[in-house]
Design a protein around this nucleic acid. Structure first.
Length: 564
RNA sequence: UGGGGCGUCGUCAAGCGGUAAGACACAGGACUUUGGUUCCUGCAUUCGGAGGUUCGAAUCCUCCCGCCCCAGCCA
């Protein structure tokens, strides 16, 4: 079902919002936020959340803030902040001037903590981390009250102030919410809300030695920004009672409501931040924007159009079921957009020289080729044709299997946009037995026309004039992991790394016009796939292409079945 | 194990008491100067299981089974 006003899908989250609006719960506003922690690059899983949060805001004429949840200085940095901003913009979303940092709220958050202490709802605890764990109990046994739970408000105020002033070493004291050590929900067993951490913060430097915990900072940041609907992933469901509890103690009136949805899982893809960081820092990939990475930066460099990612996020829907989306759907969305927008060009990955014996030595003809077979408005270009050509190596088979339509001994094939040629002979390398050159003849009457005698030519292959084509490098990117959604936690993820995730071809040839093409441009190499000119490594002399995604290939399936 | 969630086609996902949408994938076929695109066709007599309520149940009730999350001074 779709909402015809906006074209946006409806889902259980929108049902909740509709009901809130109807009940007058949010003063008629809808305000969401996307709250990344700047400790890594965002990936396709974040894209789902981004599309959801910004999409809902847009659909309801509301707002979506970008807020950096930077309450733990370790691992956070400005580089990550900048990359996140850049990548969300690239995805096509904008937050106007509503870019916030939880670290900008440190003063307010501190004041809220003091308020909580004054209300007798928080206390300073001297237990160390191990002791706190022991006192917390287990799933089946209730926890024990901390010996410091009964401190007076004055005592707590004093101690908390001294925590802030840096009188105590890291780990020696924490501020805890006084809730219920016997709660069946472990999150509610007097959760830590402030800890001492002497680590410079990338924004606040050394001005703080105490930092609020997520549970304390997040709900209050939402409230400060007057968020109406705080959408997060399922693992925070247990934290919702705490989210509400904190706001209940400190605020009156309208409050943000937390709604949880299932995070994205993608087959053959690891979205664990821990693993992604490791891939980068240990050099398994070239960086966060390595085209094999599931990061937005990686997909961008690979050549995925932002619209395809948005479309993917729309297609997968939003629900609470654990899911494992087939990457084929992502690839489908990429192909769908690129099929519409990518100009067709000739590109030969593994060149095989073909000599047209009956074509005059010095002659050059120009063929006008459509840039898109179904879209004349995309125009045409001219392509030079001469006696010596390159074709794709596997467009010729010495001993072709059944159903093979392309060139083989005794056969004819059409050169796309040009002539029909006929096999005459082959030249082999004496040492290796490899075919190194083909001799063919062309039929002059077939220039952009069917053979006058009515014979049917089934095979159509692409080609390049040897002397006019330019060299190029092509990188065939494949899946980084070879097992569907490997459990990234326990085992070493390197067990799942696909050694063939990158194949670099250095002897490729492409059309001369591609020399002037802009980095980032995407093309379809006919019969092969979609390719993008690499933004980083291309030079004027030698463009580098990354394969965005292969074309659907029926021949692959036929061949697999034995071809008959 | 206590608590919190979730179970509808291979994968997602609609459905909200009136007789199982759609997408991807897959399988056929048509067309094709890309084995691409496009176009047709097929693909859950059944909704984790068993009972019950009802004229009627994926939708309501009961019990059972399975999967995920929580015992960081991470988010």
């Amino acid at each position: 079902m779709t909402n015809t006003d906006t074209g946006s899908p409806t889902d259980f989250i929108r049902e909740i919002i509709d009901k809130d609006l109807k009940d007058g719960k949010t003063t008629g506003r809808v305000a969401t936020r996307f709250p990344p922690e700047p400790n890594g690059y965002i990936h396709i899983g974040h894209a789902k959340s981004i599309c959801l949060n910004f999409g809902i805001a847009a659909q309801y004429g509301g707002t979506c803030n970008l807020r950096f949840d930077d309450t733990d200085p370790s691992g956070e940095s400005l580089e990550y902040v900048e990359s996140i901003i850049d990548n969300i913009h690239w995805l096509g979303f904008d937050w106007g001037d509503r870019r916030f940092f939880a670290s900008d709220y440190f003063d307010q958050l501190h004041a809220f903590a003091v308020q909580l202490i004054k209300a007798g709802k928080a206390y300073v605890c001297d237990l160390n981390a191990d002791e706190i764990r022991e006192y917390r109990g287990t799933f089946t046994e209730p926890g024990q009250d901390s010996p410091h739970r009964g401190r007076t408000v004055e005592e707590n105020l004093d101690l908390f102030e001294r925590m802030r002033a840096g009188e105590f070493p890291d780990g020696s004291h924490v501020l805890r919410a006084k809730i219920d050590m016997a709660s069946p929900n472990i999150v509610m067993r007097d959760p830590v809300i402030y800890r001492i951490k002497r680590e410079p913060h990338y924004r606040t430097g050394n001005s703080w030695v105490i930092y609020p915990m997520y549970d304390f900072a997040h709900c209050l940041s939402d409230a400060i920004e007057r968020i109406t609907h705080s959408i997060c992933t399922l693992e925070f469901e247990n934290n919702r009672p705490l989210y509400d509890w904190i706001l209940d103690q400190l605020l009156e009136g309208d409050r943000p409501r937390q709604i949880e949805f299932a995070r994205l899982n993608l087959s053959y893809t690891v979205l664990s931040k821990r693993v992604l960081i490791e891939l980068v820092t240990k050099g398994y990939v070239a960086g966060w924007d390595d085209p094999r990475m599931p990061t937005v930066a990686g997909m961008r460099r690979r050549g995925f159009p932002p619209g395809a990612i948005r479309e993917f996020c729309a297609q997968i829907g939003v629900a609470k079921n654990d899911n494992l989306i087939d990457v084929a759907l992502l690839e489908h969305c990429v192909r769908e957009e690129l099929n519409e927008t990518a100009p067709r060009v000739m590109g030969v990955l593994r060149p095989l020289k073909v000599i047209i014996d009956n074509y005059p030595e010095e002659q050059v003809e120009e063929f006008e080729c459509a840039n898109h077979p179904q879209k004349p408005e995309m125009g045409t270009r001219t392509l030079p044709f001469s006696r010596e050509l390159y074709i794709e190596r596997d467009d010729f088979q010495e001993d072709p299997p059944g159903k093979y339509k392309r060139l083989a001994p005794g056969r004819e094939v059409r050169l796309r946009n040009a002539y029909v040629i006929k096999y005459e002979s082959m030249v082999k390398d004496e040492a290796t037995g490899e075919v190194v050159e083909l001799h063919c003849t062309y039929d002059p009457e077939t220039r952009n026309a069917p053979p006058p005698d009515g014979r049917k030519i089934k095979g159509v292959i692409h080609w390049l004039s040897a002397r006019h084509s330019i060299p190029a490098e092509v990188r065939l990117y494949d899946r980084l992991f070879q097992v569907p959604n490997p459990a990234a936690g326990e085992e070493d993820f390197t067990h799942y790394l696909n050694p063939a995730s990158l194949e670099t071809l250095t002897d490729c040839r492409v059309e001369p016009a591609l020399k002037e093409a802009a980095p980032g441009s995407r093309y379809q190499f006919e019969r092969i796939g979609y390719f993008c000119i690499d933004v980083k490594d291309s030079t004027l002399e030698r463009p580098v292409f990354s394969r965005v995604v292969a074309l659907r290939d029926a021949w692959g399936k036929i061949a697999e079945k034995g071809g008959k």
